[in-house]
């Protein structure tokens, strides 16, 4: 008996020594997930596991982001996870985030989980002031965020003070006015009461629609220099590339829509945007950081691919997935009406 036990123990420690796994933590917008990955896994294996765990099928919007030095990078699907240049202390931390954004949020997002993750990500970016949000829009959006959290407005339940623990507005907005917390709550509650009759899901979608209408998400900004050495901002989004003055992130000086670009090349650490119109100037730029240049290139390719894909018929698999999700949504709505 003892020898059997000893041999079993020996076997277990041997197994441990030969462990072919490493641990990762995947932080989503509403949960932290722990996974044990095989050493040979590629980015795709981990990404697919996360999507399966979340029940998320609209995978094309998302990516796994990690911090590297003073910037961020996205896990490559066809490269081994451990071959990426990142700190290897376990658990390795990744953030599961929207990498690409829809052109039209209402038409394109199908699953509730996709919508929820987008909602949480955009809301966080607005509250943390990564995105500029005018004061009046902050109040309107806060009323929909509250609606998404608390359900439909009910004056018997939602009494003064019910928002006292909530983070409602960007600090910058609060500092612009001489208003107490109670006054802000009252403003937001007035709006909340005005859009009664919606479900939480509908409130989330309304939030995203308003934010999209006001162009408050979807652009990835990068500090760049043009060939004359002028500091500029580059914005990459679902519709194309935009060049901004660093002091005005909202109105581009020049835009290059994807369908008007003949080609974007990257060589000798320099980008060149060649417009379709051969008479138009080629726009050359770069970022001083190699990692940022790589990130720009990845986002250009990914956004352009999605732009082209939106203009083609969905694959059978995607058609089926969208149909299932729509049926599920319709079934839920029917159930709600019946109740």
């Amino acid at each position: 008996m003892a020898s059997v036990l000893a041999s079993k123990m020996g076997l277990n420690s041997l197994r441990r020594k030969q462990a072919k796994t490493f641990s990762v933590t995947v932080v989503t917008m509403d949960a932290d997930l722990e996974f044990s990955c095989e050493l040979k896994w590629k980015g795709k294996d981990l990404f697919e596991l996360v999507c399966r765990t979340l029940g998320l099928r609209e995978t094309w919007f998302f990516g796994l982001r990690y911090d590297v030095k003073d910037t961020v990078a996205w896990l490559k699907m066809d490269k081994k996870v451990l071959d990426h240049d990142m700190p290897k202390e376990e658990p390795i931390v990744f953030h599961f985030l929207a990498k690409f954004y829809p052109e039209n949020v209402e038409d394109e997002l199908v699953q509730d989980i996709t919508q929820h993750l987008f909602f949480l990500q955009v809301k966080t970016s607005i509250l943390e002031e990564e995105i500029y949000c005018p004061p009046e829009a902050s109040v309107l959006l806060a009323s929909y965020a509250i609606h998404a959290k608390y359900g439909d407005y009910d004056p018997n339940v939602h009494k003064p003070g019910f928002l006292s623990q909530e983070e409602l507005l960007p600090k910058r907005v609060i500092n612009l006015y001489q208003m107490t917390a109670e006054m802000w709550e009252e403003r937001i509650t007035v709006c909340y009461a005005e859009h009664r009759g919606r479900t939480r899901d509908e409130a989330e979608m309304e939030y995203l629609k308003i934010a999209q209408d006001l162009e408050m998400y979807g652009v990835n900004y990068f500090s760049i220099r043009n060939k004359k050495g002028t500091s500029l901002l580059l914005g990459v989004d679902a519709l194309g590339l935009h060049i901004y003055d660093p002091s005005n992130k909202l109105t581009p000086k020049i835009s290059f829509p994807w369908n008007e670009i003949r080609n974007i090349s990257y060589s000798d650490k320099e980008f060149a945007i060649k417009p379709l119109d051969k008479r138009a100037d080629v726009f050359k730029f770069n970022s001083s950081k190699l990692r940022v240049n790589k990130l720009i290139l990845q986002l250009c390719i990914g956004n352009h691919d999605l732009f082209m894909r939106r203009r083609r018929v969905d694959s059978l698999e995607v058609q089926q997935m969208k149909m299932q999700a729509r049926e599920e949504k319709a079934r839920k709505q029917m159930e709600r009406r019946r109740l």
Partner: peptide
């Protein structure tokens, strides 16, 4: 930038008006 939905547009204008009297002098 105005939202496509006129209802939102009106709501934003109303909120802007209601905030105005409380704006800090510097704004």
């Amino acid at each position: 930038n105005n939202p496509r939905n006129p209802h939102h547009h009106r709501a934003l204008q109303e909120i802007r008006r209601s905030l105005m009297p409380f704006a800090n002098e510097t704004t």
